[in-house]
Simulated assay, not measured.
Amino acid sequence: MTACATPHAGIELDVIDLSKENNQSVFQSNLNSSNGKINYKAFIKYILKKMLDNTSFLSFSAQIKNVNQILKMKYSSANDIANIILKDVALTIKLLKLVNSSFYGQFSHKGITSISEAMIILGTQEIKLAAASLKIYDHMQDLSNIKVLKIKTLRALQRSIIARQIALDEDLKDAEAIQISAMLYDFGEYLVALFSPEIFIKIELLVDEKHLTRDQASKSIIGISYGMLGRFMVSKWNLPESIIHSMKPVEDINVLKKDMTIEEFKRTICAFSNELCNINFSMGDSHIREKIIKISASYESRLQIPASKSVELLKMSQHKIMQHSSILKTNTKKD
């Protein structure tokens, strides 16, 4: 892989200027327009207002600030980082349970008894990411009031596990963005399903009827792709730019692995993990097998992950979720 590219200032989100739009009136007036397309600026303001009016989401946003504080502590001591985590008793307990489970591997018969000890054994960066991931996942779970959101939250967790494993296998020295980026990869879709289910259904119908991607269908209906909506909303939390950048879809999957920058490689890992986790596993074995082979082949030049390895990644991630469902507060049973 080639050297890192120049930081992508603005991450193309600076094109979104909401200052001249009326609140949700434009959105409401366009909702029933003849062409069915919504003014995207008005729609974004509508979603933002819904977020501000939702007590649970306000709590989520507040917690994300703590996550951000943890993630941005690159040059702080382990004690400083541990103290931030320790302020959240529930997070501390869950994190210690997780690091003592086979999710991360058993390290001693006595077990890890403190966050500081966990940092020594697993590494400060690993614990920072684990804490941040647990925070985000917990709150996405709490907001999952309908089946489709529960499924999306589970997929987000599975994506993060797969992306993390690929990063480890590739021995990436700076894998900070991968785990969180993969978890938040379809955050725009999650928000629309949560706050505007009628629009979400319209987009799903368009995907089925026109055989479009979800980004294409969402852009057709709301004037902005799910991906860009998610990155815009996440940018409001001031998360590290590397995390937001890795959420951006891959434009050319035929670029050779050796010709990619580190940033492009991370984006590819997130995109690949997302496609694997979006397979409809309720279909027959032949359908699932065909989808895995097709996805693996389409990313062959970039990732060089054969279908057999893709199957292993899916099985590994599903096993971890099932095995540690009680710690992760995950309901793996079908409704």
Rank of each mutant, 00 (worst) to 15 (best):
residue 107 F to M: 12
residue 257 K to P: 03
residue 262 I to Y: 05
residue 249 P to L: 10
residue 265 F to G: 01
residue 321 I to A: 15
residue 13 L to W: 03
residue 205 L to N: 13
residue 114 S to I: 05
residue 160 S to E: 13
residue 98 L to K: 01
residue 232 F to Q: 10
residue 330 T to F: 02
residue 52 L to Y: 12
residue 153 T to N: 05
residue 90 A to F: 03
residue 77 S to N: 03
residue 158 Q to K: 07
residue 242 S to E: 15
residue 142 D to C: 00
residue 138 D to F: 00
residue 132 A to N: 01
residue 139 H to F: 09
residue 99 V to A: 08
residue 64 I to M: 03
residue 294 K to G: 09
residue 188 G to H: 05
residue 307 A to Y: 13
residue 241 E to S: 13
residue 250 V to Y: 01
residue 65 K to R: 14
residue 279 I to E: 13
residue 71 L to T: 04
residue 51 M to K: 08
residue 206 L to F: 00
residue 200 F to K: 07
residue 135 K to C: 00
residue 254 N to R: 10
residue 54 N to D: 15
residue 39 N to H: 13
residue 55 T to D: 15
residue 66 N to T: 05
residue 42 A to I: 03
residue 126 E to H: 09
residue 313 L to V: 06
residue 199 I to A: 00
residue 317 S to C: 02
residue 63 Q to H: 02
residue 108 S to L: 04
residue 38 I to D: 12
residue 96 L to I: 15
residue 204 E to K: 11
residue 181 S to A: 15
residue 204 E to D: 15
residue 18 L to P: 08
residue 243 I to T: 07
residue 239 L to M: 11
residue 188 G to E: 08
residue 296 S to H: 05
residue 98 L to E: 12
residue 222 I to A: 01
residue 61 S to T: 08
residue 217 A to L: 07
residue 93 I to F: 06
residue 182 A to M: 05
residue 17 D to I: 10
residue 223 G to C: 02
residue 180 I to V: 14
residue 184 L to H: 04
residue 87 K to H: 05
residue 43 F to K: 08
residue 301 S to I: 00
residue 103 F to I: 07
residue 48 L to C: 07
residue 308 S to D: 15
residue 161 I to Y: 11
residue 296 S to N: 04
residue 326 S to A: 08
residue 322 M to R: 11
residue 17 D to A: 12
residue 165 Q to H: 12
residue 43 F to P: 07
residue 212 L to R: 06
residue 146 I to W: 00
residue 165 Q to T: 12
residue 45 K to Q: 14
residue 105 G to V: 02
residue 271 A to T: 06
residue 328 L to K: 04
residue 104 Y to G: 13
residue 305 I to P: 04
residue 306 P to R: 13
